[in-house]
């Protein structure tokens, strides 16, 4: 096969894998009626995006961006995505916890955590 083609595939494969991961999460969110599963799906989706950032920050042959962990000629990976993702992870957990609180309340109010049952209880209008 064409070497350029394979170069492209290898160069981009990590991104593709990350995208597949995100899409699995997206699919779960959209199709699973169970609210907890939806939240898990959302987490997977978010983790996928986080992974995307980390992937783009990776430099070949680089090490963790901490001084002193190597000699003078060390190549460091890009620290900026790491910084951003630390924030993103925390935002993610905040969202998750709020979502879980809502699930608890929903369970109290409806006695179920299945979306389609809630829908039925409200006469399909929700």
């Amino acid at each position: 096969m064409n070497p350029v083609f394979w170069q492209t595939v290898w160069g981009l494969l990590p991104y593709w894998l990350v995208i597949v991961l995100m899409m699995i999460g997206l699919h779960v969110v959209m199709t699973k009626p169970n609210l907890i599963k939806k939240i898990i799906g959302l987490n997977v989706f978010q983790t996928g995006v986080i992974m995307f950032y980390i992937t783009l920050g990776k430099v070949d042959g680089g090490t963790a961006p901490i001084f002193g962990s190597g000699g003078d000629e060390v190549v460091y990976s890009n620290p900026v995505p790491h910084v951003l993702m630390l924030t993103a992870i925390v935002v993610g957990i905040a969202t998750t916890s709020l979502a879980l609180a809502l699930v608890v309340r929903l369970h109290e109010a409806y006695g179920t955590i299945e979306e389609d049952q809630i829908r039925r209880l409200e006469g399909d209008e929700v």
């Binding site: 959302l42 989706f45 969202t95 809502l102 929903l106 109010a109 809630i118």
Partner: peptide
């Protein structure tokens, strides 16, 4: 309102 908020949360987070 809870259902609406949950929906909003899912969609909004997406």
């Amino acid at each position: 309102a809870l259902v609406a908020a949950f929906r909003y949360l899912i969609v909004g987070t997406m």
